[in-house]
Amino acid sequence: MINNSKSGMSLIVRTVTGLVVCFIMLFGIYIILHGHLSPGGGFAGGVMVALSFVLLVLVFGKDANATRISKNLASNLDSIGALMFLGIALLGFAQGAFFRNILGKGSHFDLFSAGTIPLSNIAIGLKVAVGLFAIFLALVILEKFKEGQ
């Protein structure tokens, strides 16, 4: 992944990024999954996950293998994230109210607790991560378009 692309930044930046990018993404996922326990949540974590992809594009150039997510896939995943969130909200109708928390609440400070809230966080995280990355991709495509002229 580090050597397969000639574009991008210098060797030092590539090596360091290759080492830390997994941790950045992992931290984003941690923030999403612990949204109901600690500060943060779907939006903040989603931004971190998106930024880890943005970092890859910046450092390894826009043609690197790791960042070959097409714009269509990104926008489809974006819609799926939104529909997941809406679906979770609609599940509340099973117990009589829109957005009602229908799952078991569990005990305090457990990872598997708070009913539908972690699920909503995952849906928002997916939407924000993919949506932000799709915006970045759109700007990259615009740049390619300008170079082409």
């Binding site: 819609s79 529909l83 809406l86 909200a89 829109f98």
Partner: peptide, 24 residues
């Protein structure tokens, strides 16, 4: 009374369904 949230749910759901399936 359960009709009331539908005013938000129906267009929101339709928007993302259209963006997901409208291309295919």
């Amino acid at each position: 009374i359960n009709i009331i949230p539908l005013f938000v749910v129906i267009p929101l759901g339709a928007a993302f369904l259209i963006s997901l399936f409208g291309k295919f």
